[in-house]
Design a protein around this nucleic acid. Structure first.
Lengths: 128, 128
DNA sequence: TCACTGTTTCGATGTCTGTCGATGTCCTGC
DNA sequence: GCAGGACATCGACAGACATCGAAACAGTGA
């Protein structure tokens, strides 16, 4: 663990964060049968969260105020540090996270539209 | 493909469907960092939907009225019949589907609480 | 410039997963 | 009982994946 707890919570103003291209993605799962393309997109998101370590990392970041955290603050999940980096990369590739280097540390941030998109995927029409 | 389109849409009264044990599972992802156990549960659900074929099968079933379909009505997803069976089994093992034999055909049904549970996982508090 | 720290990338290895054909099981109709 | 259709299981294979240690890279501060 690193020793800058305070700093990681400081809300330093962020430079512009370009949206990584997380579009609406898909209609609700229960609205109509997915096309192969839609299924591919949806599966990519689900797959990224299909690993316990990644779920913990994602949850750890999402639950922090501002929805961001530096790697050193979330890397005590029981696997080696390179492995943490590997998982964060996967989440990033899936469009669920963005990252940004700020001095020594790299901050990962939850793409806000992601949770909305996944929520829409499980839209209310199905829950009825 | 089989030739009983009409029958697959008939709402024959179903025998009792015992809930397969799909509990609340977890708090919203962004509420607090998940414990290892919570992460394990959540990852299992996500992982089950982390394959395009499974997403298509699940969507095909969920979008049918009544949330159920027989295998023969959804098996044109571009993979062999054993593979379809394999994927349906995975979805069932993950608690997302239940199955029931009705005469010649086997019907798969979306566990209603599942979509609600996953929706709760992505609960609104995060989207803020 | 140099040493130090935090993070990512690389290469190797063992495990898991998707896919298939062949075969088995269950049901229906003759 | 027997033939045939619907679906599940088995066994095998290729490709994908998780994981690690070692090494490379980026920034900081002296």
């Amino acid at each position: 663990m690193c020793h800058h707890e305070r700093m990681s919570n400081v809300r330093t103003p962020l430079p512009v964060l370009q949206p990584t291209g997380v579009e609406p993605c898909c209609p609700p799962l229960a609205e109509r049968p997915f096309t192969p393309e839609e299924a591919e997109r949806a599966a990519r998101m689900f797959k990224a969260l299909g690993d316990p370590v990644r779920v913990r990392l994602f949850s750890a970041i999402a639950s922090r105020e501002g929805g961001e955290a530096c790697v050193c603050d979330i890397s005590d999940v029981g696997v080696s540090q390179p492995t943490v980096s590997h998982h964060l990369r996967k989440l990033k590739e899936a469009g669920l996270l963005t990252s940004e280097r700020r001095g020594t540390w790299v901050y990962y941030r939850v793409e806000p539209s992601v949770l909305a998109a996944m929520g829409a995927l499980l839209g209310s029409p199905a829950a009825a």
